[in-house]
């Protein structure tokens, strides 16, 4: 099934002009196909999420759109410029936050921003004003003269975001912006990105493997797996596209291979995923009715339930529905990362 056929249209109105248009894009490394025939477009002012596990092809996609790696086949147009033909025009129109935190730890917050403003060719007169504005926007104004290595992880990520905005880009690419941050810092980054979208009228493309992040932050989400776009729509549309409205999580005291079959036989259950020993996720059209039926089933067999809970469908369920496996099952790719510098904040 192609991405186009999986696309879930939500609005009957004419779509706003596309800030990003990706058409039949491919990326091959030798015989390995990292991205396969992906199509999507991102409207002006939209926050668009690429959701998928490590190695799904999200970063490859974002790197092609930001001119970091050449496109093997197909076309990507960003801010009206073809990334293969006019890479410099694309670079002037975009801000990019790479996955790794790359701010210079030996420089101050202001110096980091100033150097990037110069790299983007921001005129001297505007530079000071832009730096002050973005520092205010990311709430780092009072840390302007602090050395970057004294900042916490969340503050450094905010600095990276400020750095990507210092030349007032129209489109903002963020590659896993909250990876490695604690939950409080992560929520702070989400709030800040939402604020920036409104105040600066930014179009954002975010890659993430956090379901919650995609759900809370993105207007639309594309699920990417094995280099292919498997589903596209708003978070609500994607959740509604999964048969069954609720998820019942049940943990039996005693594991028995027959549980799965018994659960699948319950009326209204659309699928059952075994998680661990005696633990099952049951997708059903009626959470309350299925809960009752599971309790009755356990009682009739003289079995004990360790836990039982009902939840609404999550993007995790959507991911399972479209890919056949869970996002958290994916192993983290072994990549070389430089050890932190001594004296730097973790």
């Amino acid at each position: 099934m192609t991405a186009a056929s999986r696309s879930i249209a939500s609005s009957p109105d004419a779509p706003p002009p596309a800030a990003i248009a990706v058409e039949h894009i491919w990326k091959r490394y030798g015989t390995f196909e990292a991205v396969k025939d992906v199509n999507f477009s991102v409207a002006e002012g939209e926050i668009f999420g690429l959701l998928g596990p490590n190695g799904a092809g999200k970063s490859t996609l974002i790197r092609m759109m930001t001119t970091l790696i050449p496109v093997t086949a197909g076309k990507a147009v960003v801010a009206g410029h073809d990334v293969s033909k006019d890479p410099d025009d694309v670079r002037r129109a975009i801000g990019v936050i790479p996955q790794a935190m790359t701010s210079d730890q030996d420089l101050t917050v202001e110096e980091n921003l100033s150097i990037y403003a110069k790299l983007y060719g921001v005129p001297r007169a505007e530079r000071e004003r832009n730096i002050a504005e973005v520092l205010e926007a990311v709430d780092l104004a009072k840390w302007r003269s602090a050395q970057t290595k004294t900042l916490s992880g969340g503050m450094r990520r905010r600095l990276e975001i400020a750095r990507g905005l210092v030349h007032n880009p129209r489109i903002f690419f963020l590659d896993e912006p909250t990876t490695g941050l604690d939950p409080v810092s992560r929520i702070a980054v989400w709030e800040m990105l939402n604020k920036l979208k409104t105040t600066r009228n930014l179009t954002m493309l975010i890659t993430t493997h956090y379901m919650e992040e995609a759900d809370k932050l993105c207007d639309r989400i594309a699920i990417v797996d094995h280099g292919t776009l498997v589903a596209l729509g708003t978070p609500v549309e994607l959740k509604n596209s999964v048969a069954g409205a609720n998820v019942v999580e049940v943990h039996f005291d005693r594991d028995d291979p027959a549980w799965r079959e018994r659960l699948e036989a319950i009326d209204g259950v659309t699928s059952v995923q075994p998680e661990s020993s005696g633990f099952y996720r049951v997708i059903t059209q009626s959470g309350s009715r299925t809960t009752m039926q599971i309790v009755e089933l356990a009682a009739s067999l003289g079995e004990t339930l360790t836990s039982l809970s009902v939840q609404n469908t999550t993007l995790d369920d959507v991911f399972i529905h479209y890919t056949g496996r869970q996002l958290r099952d994916e192993q983290v790719k072994a990549v070389f990362t430089m050890p932190p510098r001594p004296g730097a904040q973790p």
Binding site: I94, V96, P98, A100, T102, Y116, R163, T337, M338
Partner: peptide, 17 residues
């Protein structure tokens, strides 16, 4: 090379330099 590994060069390459 350390800068390359840390991704600092990636930051340069997305600018119009």
């Amino acid at each position: 090379i350390d800068d390359k590994a840390r991704g600092v060069h990636e930051g340069y390459l997305v600018t119009p330099i």
